[in-house]
Each structure stands twice: as structure tokens, then as C-alpha cells.
């Protein structure tokens, strides 16, 4: 009979305490929820800066690419709306710019594209044009900057 009671006692000892396990599981759940979601994946647009005295673009060796004029896209800001000017010709929309750029890129994808935005243009609009130039297939897209900044 003694044996039986001890056996019952052992069985009672095996009972799991659930509360700490739930504590831990909740902690882990909260941690993974916090870290995994709500994070937007960031992408990058590579740019290659240039400066008048940068060695690679120095005037030591004549660059054959200068046979073709660089495409200058001016980005103006009028009444809260962007106005696009490609090589001194006003262009209606971003789609049109995309078409023009794609046409030029088919002939000469290594032709430099220079984006010259007005100081008031929001950065997002500048990146729109930059994105279009990259999508058209241009390898060299640069931002214009004034010396006196």
C-alpha cells in the first residue's frame, strides 16, 4: 500500500505549471511581432557623383561621348505642380519624358543625363525623373548643383 501512495505522489509531481510557459510564449510572440512586421523594405538608387575636377572626367583625354549633347532635364515648380523641360523644350508629363528618354537611350545609352531641379521641387519629384531616366536605360544620370551652395 505504501508503494501505491508514493506512485500517486510522483504522478502529482509531474503536473506542469502552465503559467510561466504562457508568460514566455507571450514574450516571444510580442518580440517577433515587434521585429518582423511594420518594417518597410528599403531599396536604393545608386548614383555616381561627378565634380568638375574629378580625375575620371578630366579633359586630358578627349571623350568621344561628347559628340552627343548631354540630355538636360530641367525640373521647374509652378503653382505647386512640376514642369518638365527637356533640352529647353517643355514636356507635358513624366510619361512623355520616359518616351523621349527611351528613344535617346536606344541610340546612345551612355549619353549623360543631367537633372537640374528648381530649389523648391520636392525631392520625391526629382527622384521620379531620376527613376524614369534609369528605367529608360541610361547609365549616367547626374544631378546639377550650383557652386555657391
Amino acid at each position: 500500500m505504501k508503494r501505491v501512495t508514493s506512485m500517486y505522489r510522483d504522478r502529482a509531481g509531474v503536473d506542469l505549471a502552465m503559467t510561466p510557459m504562457i508568460d514566455v510564449v507571450f514574450l516571444l510572440l510580442v518580440f517577433f511581432l515587434w521585429t518582423a512586421s511594420f518594417q518597410i523594405v528599403e531599396y536604393v538608387l545608386p548614383t555616381e557623383l561627378s565634380w568638375p575636377d574629378r580625375q575620371e572626367t578630366s579633359a586630358q583625354t578627349p571623350d568621344p561621348s561628347w559628340d552627343f549633347e548631354p540630355v538636360v532635364i530641367q525640373l521647374l515648380w509652378r503653382n505647386g505642380q512640376p514642369v518638365y523641360v527637356v533640352n529647353e523644350t517643355e514636356v507635358g508629363s513624366l510619361t512623355e519624358i520616359g518616351q523621349i528618354l527611351a528613344a535617346i537611350a536606344r541610340i546612345k545609352p551612355d549619353n549623360p543625363v543631367i537633372i537640374d531641379p528648381d530649389p523648391a521641387v520636392p525631392f520625391g519629384r526629382v527622384i521620379d525623373v531620376y527613376d524614369r531616366s534609369r528605367l529608360a536605360g541610361f547609365e549616367q544620370v547626374q544631378f546639377a548643383a550650383s557652386e555657391d551652395v
Binding site: 528599403e42 536604393v44 545608386p46 555616381e48 561627378s50 530649389p119
Partner: peptide, 19 residues
């Protein structure tokens, strides 16, 4: 613009824009 100019003046050519 000043950020781009500062990079160019420092001769850092490797610049990325986060999107």
C-alpha cells in the same frame, strides 16, 4: 543639394538614395 555638394567636395562618389 548641400548634401550632394558636400559629398562631391569630399570626393565621395559612392552615393545612394534610399527609396
Amino acid at each position: 543639394e548641400p548634401v550632394l555638394v558636400a559629398c562631391a567636395r569630399t570626393r565621395i562618389w559612392n552615393v545612394q538614395v534610399a527609396v
